[in-house]
Design a protein around this nucleic acid. Structure first.
Lengths: 193, 193
DNA sequence: AGCACGGTAGACAGACCTGTCTGTTAATGT
DNA sequence: ACATTAACAGACAGGTCTGTCTACCGTGCT
């Protein structure tokens, strides 16, 4: 990905390894439950390196959430490329979600989870506002491309259904609700033709 | 409320005061962020009393979640009494939710929050499975009383919309999405009438 | 009177957390 | 050849967490 000048095989940079470790651990066990020591151990990195790179655990958490969101967006866009028509692409967000939610490592939405365990208007809120605004904007763009009457309104409905499907999949240990969400979304789409 | 044999003014029992304190603190700041010391201080109770009553923090958490759910159910049923027809009563769940979500103390769903911060198949999962099954059963009963074709299917849709509305209200700091959910629910109801 | 009981107050142990600091090692550039 | 830099390992400080334990107090029952 980001080859250094040296030709050595060389593991990823310390920053990257820290983010990989944080991603797995924070998402799986919750941010609060995972201590710095576990992160650096999995990353194979010294504690001083973490603090010289990110400054604090809070900043590592911010970076973790930002990267999660970027990857969510990239995976979603890549997953939607298989569709031909704008309409299929719009409804396809639920197909991509279904694949994600069926994975054994699925543990719900990182934004929901991070907010649930942050005591108060913490640093995560900033990132989560950003991530949600971006997600809503993506839905709205897809809706506009599908030529619906009121893209903003339909995007709000999709956001509602997407949130419900993610939370339901997580709590009921069953991704079947994603198909329900897709069906309801399709009817809302047909109505707003 | 629960007068004892004595005529003394007498505060509530230690158990009740502990649950009151736990309810406010756990819900507001998250279970993990709130230490035992803060709970006993707000309850005005000695630490030994907490441990002789509940045995562990985990058990206090279980009791907190159970009581939250019972109160949710009671408030929901009480709120639905104002409606005349079964159809209004079914859709009324979103009106009751709208009132709750508009409160300044609203912090989302205790089940979602508790699961988000529990590392793994912890004790909370048991209670949250129970709470969600009970909630779904309530929706199904209301749907059946409204005479819909497939009450189980409609209850699943209501669950999806309810989850999405709760999460959206929390994360976007705006209870407007509850009306959207109600509107979508109404259309689903009309279709399955 | 005597006594059990439920509660209070708070010290304490042992674990874990974040963040800092010291000292070492290896690679790089001049 | 030498200085700089980045990363390593790990001890340490200071705080917080859960859970236990001792000692004391007041009330009501027998």
């Amino acid at each position: 990905m980001t080859p250094t000048t040296s030709a050595a095989p060389a593991r990823a940079s310390a920053r990257e390894r820290l983010l990989d470790a944080a991603d797995e651990l924070f998402y799986e066990d919750g941010i609060h439950s995972v201590g710095i020591d576990r992160v650096i151990e999995r990353a194979g990195v010294a504690k001083a390196t973490l603090y010289s790179t990110f400054g604090s655990k809070d900043e590592l958490v911010r970076a973790y959430l930002l990267r999660r969101h970027e990857r969510w967006r990239a995976r979603m866009l890549a997953g939607l490329e298989r569709y031909e028509t704008p309409r299929e692409r719009l409804l396809g967000v639920f197909d991509v979600l279904a694949e994600t939610a069926a994975s054994p490592t699925f543990r719900g939405c990182y934004v929901v989870n991070a907010n649930a365990e942050s005591p108060r208007g913490a640093a995560v809120e900033e990132v989560s506002d950003l991530a949600r605004a971006d997600r809503l904007a993506l839905f709205e763009t897809l809706a506009r491309e599908a030529g619906v009457d009121d893209p903003a309104q339909l995007a709000a409905v999709f956001m509602l259904l997407y949130d419900g499907a993610v939370v339901g999949s997580r709590l009921d240990h069953d991704a079947a609700v994603v198909s329900t969400a897709r069906a309801v979304a399709e009817e809302a789409l047909d109505r707003s033709g």
